[in-house]
């Protein structure tokens, strides 16, 4: 069961603001979904290797050769708040 504190903790980890009226519904929905997914708890999976990926031993490495970078104005073009030379954010110290 997902309680209010767990929801708030997970929201913090996820950097999601939840308004007061959004917390209880989220707790309820997550609990319901997790309840439903609990069926995998019934399986005996002792000694079964996890599969993170169905593709194994196939991904190639890249040669250390430069490819063109973006012109700075293109790199900054989509930024919500850009200065002349960078991406502006509220100061972490503030």
């Amino acid at each position: 069961m997902i309680d209010r504190d767990t929801v708030l903790h997970v929201a913090t980890l996820s950097r999601l603001e939840l308004r007061d009226d959004e917390i209880e519904p989220m707790a309820r929905e997550l609990s319901a979904v997790l309840d439903h997914l609990e069926t995998i708890g019934e399986l005996d999976l002792e000694g079964v290797e996890p599969t993170a990926h169905v593709l194994a031993e196939r991904s190639p490495l890249r040669a250390d050769e430069p490819s063109p970078s973006l012109p700075r104005e293109v790199a900054l073009d989509q930024a919500p708040d850009a200065s002349d030379d960078g991406f502006r954010v509220p100061s972490p110290q503030a």
Partner: peptide, 8 residues
């Protein structure tokens, strides 16, 4: 556990 299920 979900990854183990994927294996199965």
């Amino acid at each position: 556990r979900a990854q183990q299920v994927r294996t199965k």
